[in-house]
Design a protein around this nucleic acid. Structure first.
Lengths: 158, 158
DNA sequence: TATTGTTATACTCTATAACTATA
DNA sequence: TATAGTTATAGAGTATAACAATA
Protein backbone atom coordinates (compact mmCIF):
# COMPACT_ATOMS: atom_id res chain seq x y z
CA UNK A 1 0.00 0.00 0.00
CA UNK A 2 1.42 3.40 -0.95
CA UNK A 3 2.25 5.81 1.88
CA UNK A 4 0.06 8.41 0.19
CA UNK A 5 -3.11 6.69 1.30
CA UNK A 6 -1.91 6.62 4.91
CA UNK A 7 -1.02 10.28 4.81
CA UNK A 8 -4.39 11.17 3.31
CA UNK A 9 -6.12 9.19 6.05
CA UNK A 10 -4.10 10.93 8.75
CA UNK A 11 -4.93 14.29 7.16
CA UNK A 12 -8.59 13.36 7.41
CA UNK A 13 -8.18 12.40 11.05
CA UNK A 14 -6.65 15.81 11.76
CA UNK A 15 -9.45 17.53 9.86
CA UNK A 16 -11.97 15.56 11.89
CA UNK A 17 -10.40 16.73 15.13
CA UNK A 18 -10.56 20.33 13.89
CA UNK A 19 -14.24 20.05 12.96
CA UNK A 20 -15.18 18.29 16.21
CA UNK A 21 -13.39 20.98 18.18
CA UNK A 22 -15.22 23.69 16.30
CA UNK A 23 -18.59 22.02 16.86
CA UNK A 24 -17.89 21.47 20.54
CA UNK A 25 -16.74 25.04 21.12
CA UNK A 26 -19.87 26.44 19.47
CA UNK A 27 -22.22 24.29 21.52
CA UNK A 28 -20.36 24.86 24.78
CA UNK A 29 -20.26 28.61 24.30
CA UNK A 30 -24.06 28.59 24.06
CA UNK A 31 -24.11 26.84 27.46
CA UNK A 32 -21.77 29.42 28.98
CA UNK A 33 -18.88 26.95 29.12
CA UNK A 34 -15.34 26.84 27.81
CA UNK A 35 -13.69 23.62 26.66
CA UNK A 36 -11.49 23.36 29.75
CA UNK A 37 -14.41 23.84 32.13
CA UNK A 38 -16.61 21.49 30.12
CA UNK A 39 -13.87 18.87 30.26
CA UNK A 40 -13.79 19.13 34.05
CA UNK A 41 -17.59 18.93 34.20
CA UNK A 42 -17.54 15.91 31.89
CA UNK A 43 -15.17 14.06 34.22
CA UNK A 44 -17.19 15.14 37.22
CA UNK A 45 -20.20 13.45 35.65
CA UNK A 46 -18.71 10.07 36.62
CA UNK A 47 -16.31 11.06 39.42
CA UNK A 48 -18.31 13.53 41.53
CA UNK A 49 -17.97 14.06 44.35
CA UNK A 50 -14.19 13.94 44.09
CA UNK A 51 -11.14 15.87 45.25
CA UNK A 52 -9.38 18.47 43.16
CA UNK A 53 -6.34 16.24 43.27
CA UNK A 54 -8.23 13.51 41.41
CA UNK A 55 -9.42 16.03 38.87
CA UNK A 56 -5.87 17.28 38.32
CA UNK A 57 -4.78 13.70 37.64
CA UNK A 58 -7.51 12.79 35.15
CA UNK A 59 -7.32 16.16 33.38
CA UNK A 60 -3.51 15.98 33.30
CA UNK A 61 -3.08 19.52 34.58
CA UNK A 62 -1.56 20.98 37.74
CA UNK A 63 -3.53 21.39 40.97
CA UNK A 64 -3.22 25.13 40.43
CA UNK A 65 -5.11 24.87 37.14
CA UNK A 66 -7.89 22.90 38.83
CA UNK A 67 -8.22 25.60 41.49
CA UNK A 68 -8.77 28.16 38.73
CA UNK A 69 -11.24 25.99 36.82
CA UNK A 70 -13.27 25.12 39.92
CA UNK A 71 -13.27 28.81 40.90
CA UNK A 72 -14.85 29.68 37.58
CA UNK A 73 -17.35 26.84 37.64
CA UNK A 74 -18.35 27.65 41.22
CA UNK A 75 -18.85 31.35 40.42
CA UNK A 76 -21.13 30.44 37.54
CA UNK A 77 -23.09 27.94 39.62
CA UNK A 78 -22.11 24.61 38.08
CA UNK A 79 -20.25 23.13 41.06
CA UNK A 80 -19.75 23.64 44.77
CA UNK A 81 -16.84 22.90 47.10
CA UNK A 82 -17.44 20.88 50.24
CA UNK A 83 -15.02 19.84 52.95
CA UNK A 84 -13.87 16.25 52.63
CA UNK A 85 -15.07 14.37 55.72
CA UNK A 86 -12.16 11.92 55.78
CA UNK A 87 -9.27 14.29 54.91
CA UNK A 88 -9.41 17.84 56.17
CA UNK A 89 -6.78 19.02 53.69
CA UNK A 90 -8.94 18.07 50.72
CA UNK A 91 -12.09 19.59 49.26
CA UNK A 92 -14.73 17.63 47.42
CA UNK A 93 -16.12 19.10 44.23
CA UNK A 94 -19.78 18.30 43.63
CA UNK A 95 -22.24 19.15 40.88
CA UNK A 96 -25.04 21.59 41.63
CA UNK A 97 -28.49 21.00 40.21
CA UNK A 98 -27.50 23.29 37.33
CA UNK A 99 -24.32 21.26 36.95
CA UNK A 100 -26.27 18.01 36.73
CA UNK A 101 -28.65 19.52 34.19
CA UNK A 102 -25.74 20.78 32.12
CA UNK A 103 -23.89 17.47 32.06
CA UNK A 104 -27.15 15.85 30.98
CA UNK A 105 -27.35 18.32 28.08
CA UNK A 106 -23.78 17.41 27.21
CA UNK A 107 -24.58 13.69 27.27
CA UNK A 108 -27.64 14.27 25.11
CA UNK A 109 -25.56 16.30 22.67
CA UNK A 110 -22.97 13.54 22.56
CA UNK A 111 -25.61 10.88 21.80
CA UNK A 112 -27.25 13.09 19.25
CA UNK A 113 -23.95 13.70 17.52
CA UNK A 114 -23.17 9.98 17.45
CA UNK A 115 -26.54 9.32 15.84
CA UNK A 116 -26.10 12.04 13.24
CA UNK A 117 -22.60 10.92 12.33
CA UNK A 118 -23.30 7.21 12.01
CA UNK A 119 -27.02 6.78 11.37
CA UNK A 120 -26.75 6.33 7.62
CA UNK A 121 -23.27 4.86 7.48
CA UNK A 122 -23.32 1.40 5.82
CA UNK A 123 -22.83 -1.35 8.41
CA UNK A 124 -19.66 -2.73 6.82
CA UNK A 125 -18.11 0.73 6.63
CA UNK A 126 -19.00 1.34 10.26
CA UNK A 127 -17.36 -1.93 11.27
CA UNK A 128 -14.16 -1.05 9.46
CA UNK A 129 -14.20 2.46 10.89
CA UNK A 130 -14.61 1.17 14.43
CA UNK A 131 -11.94 -1.52 14.00
CA UNK A 132 -9.62 1.07 12.52
CA UNK A 133 -10.18 3.35 15.49
CA UNK A 134 -9.28 0.57 17.89
CA UNK A 135 -6.15 -0.22 15.90
CA UNK A 136 -5.01 3.38 15.66
CA UNK A 137 -5.64 4.11 19.34
CA UNK A 138 -3.65 1.07 20.31
CA UNK A 139 -0.70 2.15 18.14
CA UNK A 140 -0.84 5.65 19.50
CA UNK A 141 -0.84 4.42 23.09
CA UNK A 142 2.29 2.39 22.35
CA UNK A 143 3.99 5.40 20.78
CA UNK A 144 3.13 7.66 23.70
CA UNK A 145 4.34 5.10 26.23
CA UNK A 146 7.62 4.84 24.33
CA UNK A 147 8.04 8.63 24.26
CA UNK A 148 7.25 8.76 27.96
CA UNK A 149 9.93 6.18 28.65
CA UNK A 150 12.51 8.01 26.53
CA UNK A 151 11.71 11.26 28.29
CA UNK A 152 12.22 9.79 31.73
CA UNK A 153 15.49 8.03 30.85
CA UNK A 154 16.76 11.25 29.25
CA UNK A 155 15.92 13.10 32.44
CA UNK A 156 17.63 10.42 34.54
CA UNK A 157 20.73 10.81 32.39
CA UNK A 158 21.21 14.35 33.68
CA UNK B 1 -27.85 -1.09 14.88
CA UNK B 2 -27.97 -0.18 18.56
CA UNK B 3 -27.03 3.39 19.50
CA UNK B 4 -24.48 1.96 21.92
CA UNK B 5 -22.09 1.07 19.15
CA UNK B 6 -22.29 4.58 17.72
CA UNK B 7 -21.63 6.10 21.09
CA UNK B 8 -18.67 3.81 21.69
CA UNK B 9 -17.26 4.75 18.30
CA UNK B 10 -17.66 8.46 19.05
CA UNK B 11 -15.99 7.93 22.42
CA UNK B 12 -13.07 6.37 20.60
CA UNK B 13 -12.89 9.30 18.20
CA UNK B 14 -12.70 11.68 21.15
CA UNK B 15 -10.02 9.55 22.79
CA UNK B 16 -8.09 9.58 19.53
CA UNK B 17 -8.18 13.37 19.43
CA UNK B 18 -6.90 13.48 23.02
CA UNK B 19 -4.02 11.12 22.28
CA UNK B 20 -3.07 12.89 19.05
CA UNK B 21 -3.06 16.21 20.87
CA UNK B 22 -0.82 14.81 23.58
CA UNK B 23 1.61 13.36 21.05
CA UNK B 24 1.70 16.59 19.05
CA UNK B 25 2.26 18.76 22.10
CA UNK B 26 5.15 16.59 23.27
CA UNK B 27 6.89 16.65 19.91
CA UNK B 28 6.32 20.35 19.35
CA UNK B 29 7.61 21.27 22.79
CA UNK B 30 10.87 19.53 21.94
CA UNK B 31 11.09 21.80 18.88
CA UNK B 32 10.45 24.92 20.94
CA UNK B 33 6.95 25.35 19.52
CA UNK B 34 3.45 25.64 20.91
CA UNK B 35 0.43 24.20 19.12
CA UNK B 36 -0.81 27.62 18.01
CA UNK B 37 2.56 28.63 16.59
CA UNK B 38 3.02 25.24 14.97
CA UNK B 39 -0.39 25.56 13.36
CA UNK B 40 0.61 28.89 11.84
CA UNK B 41 3.90 27.42 10.66
CA UNK B 42 2.06 24.45 9.17
CA UNK B 43 -0.17 26.75 7.12
CA UNK B 44 2.82 28.85 6.12
CA UNK B 45 4.36 25.72 4.67
CA UNK B 46 1.94 25.98 1.71
CA UNK B 47 0.94 29.67 1.86
CA UNK B 48 4.24 31.50 2.49
CA UNK B 49 4.89 34.22 1.72
CA UNK B 50 1.44 35.48 2.68
CA UNK B 51 -0.18 38.36 4.56
CA UNK B 52 -1.22 38.18 8.19
CA UNK B 53 -4.77 38.74 7.02
CA UNK B 54 -4.67 35.48 5.07
CA UNK B 55 -3.26 33.69 8.08
CA UNK B 56 -6.01 35.07 10.30
CA UNK B 57 -8.58 33.72 7.86
CA UNK B 58 -7.19 30.20 7.53
CA UNK B 59 -6.45 29.91 11.26
CA UNK B 60 -9.90 31.31 12.13
CA UNK B 61 -8.50 33.79 14.64
CA UNK B 62 -8.48 37.59 14.81
CA UNK B 63 -5.75 39.69 13.16
CA UNK B 64 -4.65 40.61 16.67
CA UNK B 65 -3.93 36.97 17.48
CA UNK B 66 -1.85 36.61 14.33
CA UNK B 67 0.20 39.65 15.31
CA UNK B 68 1.02 37.98 18.62
CA UNK B 69 1.82 34.61 17.03
CA UNK B 70 4.06 36.13 14.35
CA UNK B 71 5.77 38.23 17.03
CA UNK B 72 6.66 35.06 18.92
CA UNK B 73 7.74 33.14 15.83
CA UNK B 74 9.86 36.06 14.62
CA UNK B 75 11.57 36.44 18.01
CA UNK B 76 12.48 32.76 18.00
CA UNK B 77 13.73 32.89 14.41
CA UNK B 78 11.15 30.83 12.54
CA UNK B 79 9.69 33.60 10.38
CA UNK B 80 10.39 37.13 9.23
CA UNK B 81 8.14 40.03 8.26
CA UNK B 82 8.68 41.77 4.92
CA UNK B 83 6.82 44.68 3.41
CA UNK B 84 4.29 43.66 0.79
CA UNK B 85 5.39 45.18 -2.53
CA UNK B 86 1.86 45.59 -3.89
CA UNK B 87 0.08 46.84 -0.73
CA UNK B 88 1.97 49.03 1.66
CA UNK B 89 -0.51 48.37 4.48
CA UNK B 90 0.21 44.65 4.46
CA UNK B 91 3.20 42.64 5.63
CA UNK B 92 4.25 39.36 4.14
CA UNK B 93 5.25 36.59 6.53
CA UNK B 94 7.98 34.32 5.21
CA UNK B 95 9.79 31.29 6.57
CA UNK B 96 13.42 31.64 7.60
CA UNK B 97 15.86 28.84 6.90
CA UNK B 98 15.18 27.58 10.42
CA UNK B 99 11.46 27.85 9.68
CA UNK B 100 11.83 25.76 6.53
CA UNK B 101 13.88 23.17 8.38
CA UNK B 102 11.29 23.01 11.14
CA UNK B 103 8.31 22.58 8.83
CA UNK B 104 10.27 19.80 7.14
CA UNK B 105 10.68 18.10 10.51
CA UNK B 106 6.95 18.49 11.05
CA UNK B 107 6.18 16.94 7.66
CA UNK B 108 8.56 14.07 8.38
CA UNK B 109 6.91 13.53 11.75
CA UNK B 110 3.51 13.54 10.10
CA UNK B 111 4.58 10.93 7.54
CA UNK B 112 6.26 8.86 10.18
CA UNK B 113 3.14 8.91 12.33
CA UNK B 114 0.96 7.89 9.39
CA UNK B 115 3.26 4.96 8.75
CA UNK B 116 3.30 3.85 12.36
CA UNK B 117 -0.47 4.10 12.70
CA UNK B 118 -1.41 2.26 9.52
CA UNK B 119 1.53 0.10 8.52
CA UNK B 120 0.18 -3.14 9.93
CA UNK B 121 -3.52 -2.39 9.63
CA UNK B 122 -5.26 -5.00 7.45
CA UNK B 123 -6.15 -3.55 4.05
CA UNK B 124 -9.89 -4.13 4.40
CA UNK B 125 -9.93 -2.47 7.82
CA UNK B 126 -7.99 0.49 6.43
CA UNK B 127 -10.48 0.87 3.59
CA UNK B 128 -13.41 0.91 6.00
CA UNK B 129 -11.62 3.31 8.29
CA UNK B 130 -10.88 5.71 5.47
CA UNK B 131 -14.40 5.49 4.05
CA UNK B 132 -15.79 6.05 7.53
CA UNK B 133 -13.65 9.14 7.95
CA UNK B 134 -14.94 10.58 4.69
CA UNK B 135 -18.52 9.86 5.73
CA UNK B 136 -18.14 11.36 9.19
CA UNK B 137 -16.36 14.48 7.96
CA UNK B 138 -19.09 15.05 5.41
CA UNK B 139 -21.81 14.76 8.09
CA UNK B 140 -19.93 17.07 10.40
CA UNK B 141 -19.52 19.68 7.69
CA UNK B 142 -23.26 19.62 7.11
CA UNK B 143 -23.95 19.99 10.81
CA UNK B 144 -21.56 22.91 11.17
CA UNK B 145 -23.00 24.66 8.12
CA UNK B 146 -26.48 24.27 9.62
CA UNK B 147 -25.35 25.68 12.98
CA UNK B 148 -23.65 28.54 11.17
CA UNK B 149 -26.88 29.32 9.34
CA UNK B 150 -28.96 29.17 12.52
CA UNK B 151 -26.51 31.48 14.25
CA UNK B 152 -26.69 34.08 11.52
CA UNK B 153 -30.50 34.01 11.25
CA UNK B 154 -30.74 34.29 15.05
CA UNK B 155 -28.48 37.30 14.90
CA UNK B 156 -30.52 38.79 12.06
CA UNK B 157 -33.67 38.32 14.13
CA UNK B 158 -32.43 40.93 16.60
C1' DT C 1 8.01 14.20 55.78
C1' DA C 2 4.53 14.03 52.28
C1' DT C 3 0.26 15.73 50.49
C1' DT C 4 -3.83 19.10 49.45
C1' DG C 5 -4.95 23.19 48.03
C1' DT C 6 -3.92 27.97 48.01
C1' DT C 7 -1.52 32.59 46.91
C1' DA C 8 1.92 34.98 44.07
C1' DT C 9 3.70 35.54 39.68
C1' DA C 10 4.29 34.96 34.79
C1' DC C 11 3.59 33.36 30.01
C1' DT C 12 0.62 32.07 25.99
C1' DC C 13 -3.52 32.50 23.38
C1' DT C 14 -7.34 34.97 22.32
C1' DA C 15 -10.88 38.76 22.03
C1' DT C 16 -12.70 43.70 21.52
C1' DA C 17 -11.90 48.39 20.68
C1' DA C 18 -9.39 52.39 19.26
C1' DC C 19 -5.83 53.96 16.24
C1' DT C 20 -2.42 54.61 12.14
C1' DA C 21 -1.25 54.09 7.61
C1' DT C 22 -2.70 52.97 3.35
C1' DA C 23 -6.07 51.67 -0.43
C1' DT D 1 -14.89 54.55 3.28
C1' DA D 2 -12.77 50.22 3.82
C1' DT D 3 -8.78 47.43 4.90
C1' DA D 4 -4.08 45.74 7.18
C1' DG D 5 -1.86 45.70 11.09
C1' DT D 6 -0.80 47.69 15.52
C1' DT D 7 -1.36 49.27 20.51
C1' DA D 8 -4.12 49.01 24.73
C1' DT D 9 -6.64 46.29 27.61
C1' DA D 10 -8.73 42.19 29.44
C1' DG D 11 -9.88 37.39 30.35
C1' DA D 12 -9.01 32.31 30.24
C1' DG D 13 -5.81 28.57 30.79
C1' DT D 14 -1.70 26.91 32.34
C1' DA D 15 2.91 26.56 34.75
C1' DT D 16 6.37 27.00 38.70
C1' DA D 17 7.39 28.18 43.30
C1' DA D 18 6.47 29.25 48.04
C1' DC D 19 3.28 28.53 51.73
C1' DA D 20 -0.44 26.86 55.11
C1' DA D 21 -2.94 23.22 56.99
C1' DT D 22 -3.22 18.57 57.62
C1' DA D 23 -1.85 13.60 57.23
Amino acid sequence: MPDDRWENALSRVLELTLLLGRDATENLTRMGLTEARAHLLWELRTLAPCTQRELATVLRVTPRAVTALVDGLAETGFVTREPCPTDRRATLVTLTEQGHATTQVMVDGFRNLARQLFTDMPADVFDGFDDGLIHVISRLRTLLARNQQEASTTQAGH
